[in-house]
Design a protein around this nucleic acid. Structure first.
Lengths: 297, 297
DNA sequence: TCCATTCCATATATAAAACATATGAAGAAT
DNA sequence: ATTCTTCATATGTTTTATATATGGAATGGA
């Protein structure tokens, strides 16, 4: 078909053959074979050169488009392979999206790979990891690595401090210290989140408090970290949240570091399928890692 | 590419090979060759079968459409070749379109070849034939064969009587005869049409009148036959027109046969390019001939 | 009118490709 | 552990594509 188009363009079998880089007789045979296969005479043989017949013209216009499409198809496929084009599905939890670097990572990727369309979706960590295993998502920013899935790989992006969230006017805010001793949390009413929404931190927190002789009085479980802060703002109790949330929720809430032997910190993790070789996903992971590394402070 | 699609559809190289009718190893090689040519891994080799990669899926959807298009292109071309599809440009003069069979021929062709679009155009015979030679038209219903063009072939469709057109109340209408003797036309004021618009009839008429000792008193030349009849209706003189026009112009005009040794008749002709092998054109000519033959009387 | 020129067609030979057969290797199923 | 399934590799064979040589038809110029 490529040969056919060139012959039609040139109007000469001989000249077309030169252009293609073969000799004239085989090209004549190719054209003849094509005509026989279609059962249609495509060219009128003239004393000097050839000319498309009516049917040949129709075939020409159809074929030209197709040859174009083939080239486009190849280029598109190659671009997708290189990760320069396509679509990736990215998930995140409500708490990681509060972190500036998460938003920046997505922004950076968008800027660098403008032809890759990003589909974003918010959900809980466990659900996100399940979605990845089921190919509903390609990548997700999550907090827990508790739910280990055989087919899901977890990348560590950063570690952030867990801070104490206190309602305005709370007694522990009276001194102007930057920190609060963990022992002082005894008897405080705690507002936490559902264990299932963040099992790693939940268990860690309970265990650290326990080590300091505190069995927390949990008066309320919020569905998410953000909603826990609203309850704190309402003065219902205190909570412990990742540092990144301290910036976004400031009304009627103040934050303090927790002085304690054990470190109290939360991870931001990036999950993806182990078996996914897609370059776009690899590029996304790279961009996310770079962004978090560059903005460590 | 056809192979690629089948492998993708089947999910197994072996099964695909069976379906194609070749063995598995060459098909594996073909797929490998395609992957190398694109520089893209299209399939993930699994323990039982193969699976499209992300890029492979993209290539698949593009290629599927293209393979479809190729089939359609071939079918379309073949339909055009058979004359079942396409477009033809048909011309006619104002006087031939008055003939019922002309309209019927176009109508019949439309009915039989519903996928061929007809473009119609009215013009003078000479211009129509020129347009055919210049590929602006494919076929034309014309009256003259005077303008012989080397590249244009003329088919004879029918011969119709030339009749005398007389204004109501004319002295030659007094007797109730169906005919008028040509000798009686002496001294009558003639309304004719431009010689150039219909040279064959013009010359024939002058010559026949001359043979009967009449040198006509041409008081007016109309641009077309139809307009000549309007002048007759206005009582300005008499004219001679093809029989088919007698039906359409009846107001204030009456018609008589002309009694005369020489026959006075006009042809309806169909012109097309000699070199045009297009089946659609051939079909049109056939339809036109059949229609005129069937409706001879 | 004749000859050179141009360009396609045909015949045959050769190189390249597609395909077949035989066999091996890796993972899954029994 | 063994068999089964399925893809990969190696090598031989057939088919297809291309090259070379030559002929024929139509054109254009001398």
């Amino acid at each position: 078909m490529r040969y056919f188009k060139i012959v039609a363009d040139e109007g000469h079998i001989t000249r077309a053959a030169e252009k293609i880089g073969i000799q004239q007789p085989p090209l004549s045979l190719q054209i003849k074979a094509l005509e026989e296969e279609l059962g249609v005479k495509l060219f009128q043989r003239l004393p000097r050169g050839v000319e498309l017949t009516k049917s040949g013209e129709v075939f020409y216009s159809e074929i030209s488009k197709i040859l174009n499409d083939v080239e486009k198809a190849i280029l598109t496929t190659q671009r997708v392979e290189r990760g320069d084009q396509g679509e990736i599905f990215v998930g995140f939890t409500s708490s990681v999206i509060s972190h500036a670097s998460t938003k920046l990572a997505i922004h950076n990727y968008r800027n660098q790979y403008t032809s890759v369309s990003l589909s974003l979706k918010e959900n809980g960590s466990e659900k996100l990891i399940k979605d990845i295993a089921e190919h509903k998502l390609d990548i997700a920013f999550v907090r827990t690595n508790g739910v280990q899935n055989n087919n899901v790989k977890i990348h560590h992006l950063c570690e952030e401090e867990l801070k104490l969230a206190l309602p305005l006017g709370h007694r522990l805010l009276k001194d102007d210290n930057d920190f609060v001793n963990i022992k002082d949390l005894k008897d405080e009413p705690f507002i936490l989140y559902r264990r299932s929404s963040w099992p790693g931190i939940y268990d860690r927190l309970i265990s650290v408090l326990d080590n300091n002789g505190i069995s927390p009085n949990i008066i309320q479980e919020a569905p998410q970290v953000g909603s826990a802060l609203n309850l704190v703002a309402a003065g219902m109790g205190i909570s412990v949240v990742p540092n990144s949330l301290c910036v976004s929720h400031t009304e009627n809430v103040r934050y303090r570091s927790i002085k304690c032997k054990q470190t109290l910190s939360a991870s931001i993790l990036l999950a993806c399928r182990k078996s996914d070789g897609s370059q776009a996903v690899k590029n996304f992971i790279q961009t996310a890692r770079n962004t978090f590394a560059e903005n460590k402070e």
